[in-house]
């Protein structure tokens, strides 16, 4: 038990993202309402965005812009650049694209839900399946 807590705390970002992901997956599998499933799907995608953002973060580090690097030859020589002082911006930049993708997916999914509602007058999946079988 005493080993477990540091084990969880040391990698807490992974635990949080897995928990979120499983909440999303649960909603997609277990919920009967189509919009609730769509929201679950969005939570699922957000969990992965959180994962990427957290692997790029670093304690006590700043954005990777080097001050006085241009036009100041003395400054550039005197400063030694340590990697530990700067975060890796790439995962964050990738997630800008992934956020756009997840917003677009959410939009398409909700539009489809509207189409389903117009046709079947309900968003509950079991009622729709009953309708399809009844026809």
């Amino acid at each position: 038990m005493s080993d477990l807590i540091p084990f969880i705390v040391a990698k807490y970002n992974y635990w949080i993202y897995i928990t979120l992901m499983m909440i999303g997956l649960y909603a997609m599998i277990a919920k009967n309402n189509l919009v609730k499933k769509i929201v679950g799907m969005n939570i699922f995608q957000t969990a992965i965005i959180l994962f990427y953002v957290s692997i790029g973060a670093k304690k006590g580090a700043t954005i990777p812009i080097i001050e006085h690097a241009h036009g100041d030859a003395h400054g550039a020589v005197s400063h030694t650049i340590e990697i530990a002082h700067y975060i890796n911006p790439l995962p964050h930049v990738l997630m800008l694209t992934a956020i756009v993708v997840s917003v677009a997916t959410l939009g398409v999914a909700l539009a489809l839900a509207i189409k389903v509602y117009n046709r079947h007058k309900t968003l509950e999946e079991d009622e729709i399946i009953d309708q399809i079988k009844g026809i």
Binding site: M28, M41, T105, A109, L112, V116, I128, I132
Partner: peptide
């Protein structure tokens, strides 16, 4: 039935 089938594909 296309919208419902598409929604399942989308999930």
């Amino acid at each position: 039935r296309a919208p419902l089938a598409t929604l399942n594909y989308l999930y």
